[in-house]
């Protein structure tokens, strides 16, 4: 139970960590000061959630590791985030598409997680729901603006949606730990979120005058620790200090 709970927490937390890292690296480089500030807020929300999850995971693991050890001292194969969130900040369309495709899932997940028998998880979920509702509003608005903006922005947004679509299906895969935790009444059965997810996503895409991708070919592996080639570089940054200067406090 303990081992599965630990894995289950990481399965949720790693997504926020990696997406937070991606969004955070945009600070100072966005299309306007106002969007910079907004994207940093999203990143800060995600890192805030991450800290709560990892602190809990550290307690569950009970082997002396801290939130930072869990965040920064695992090997790439031990990170279990979905492939979607590690995709690079190719341009603002990709950034917003990635955010949107994750936000819709994230909010559905948290709504269910709120009902978890595990009171810590349910408390973190209740707090995060407000943040993530705002993220979804923000990213949906940008999907519409870019989708139904100029010809150029429409094309770029369509490209981004098409490219990232392949990573959406993995959101609804269950790991072994997930299945156990669902049975215990702790975890969320993500397979049940799938239909609502695509319905909500498609509504926004339609409003944004974008085509809903028809491709049925999907990528997976993140939840089992098999990542895209982008992940190693992201981790090199994330882990740089902890790896270069082991066993120090900052």
């Amino acid at each position: 139970m303990k081992d599965n709970l630990y894995k289950y927490i990481l399965g949720i937390a790693d997504n926020s960590l990696i997406l937070g890292q991606r969004m955070g690296s945009l600070t100072g480089h966005g299309p306007s000061l106002e969007t910079d500030i907004a994207c940093t807020n999203i990143s800060l929300d995600l890192f805030g959630q991450v800290r709560s999850y990892y602190q809990y995971a550290a307690k569950i693991a009970g082997d002396g590791r801290t939130e930072d050890d869990i965040a920064m001292l695992r090997k790439e194969r031990e990170y279990v985030n979905v492939l979607l969130v590690e995709q690079p900040n190719t341009d603002f369309a990709y950034t917003m598409a990635r955010q949107f495709l994750f936000d819709v899932y994230h909010l559905l997940l948290l709504n269910e997680l709120q009902k978890s028998k595990d009171l810590t998880l349910s408390a973190i979920a209740s707090k995060s729901i407000k943040e993530v509702s705002y993220h979804q509003r923000f990213s949906s608005d940008w999907i519409k603006r870019l989708g139904d903006g100029t010809d150029l922005s429409h094309q770029k947004m369509q490209d981004a949606i098409d490219a990232l679509w392949a990573y959406t299906d993995e959101l609804f895969h269950q790991t072994q730990a997930d299945k156990v935790m669902v049975k215990e009444g702790v975890g969320v059965d993500v397979t049940k979120l799938k239909e609502t997810y695509y319905k909500q996503v498609n509504e926004v895409l339609e409003e944004a005058t974008l085509n809903i991708p028809e491709s049925k070919y999907f990528q997976k592996g993140g939840k089992e620790g098999i990542h895209t080639e982008h992940m190693g570089y992201l981790l090199s940054d994330l882990q740089y200090m902890q790896r270069t200067y082991p066993n120090m406090e900052w």
Binding site: S32, R145, L146, G149, L152, S153
Partner: peptide, 12 residues
């Protein structure tokens, strides 16, 4: 890099 984004928002 942000120009097309700002333009799109205005057009929308």
């Amino acid at each position: 890099r942000g120009e097309w984004v700002r333009d799109a928002a205005m057009a929308y």
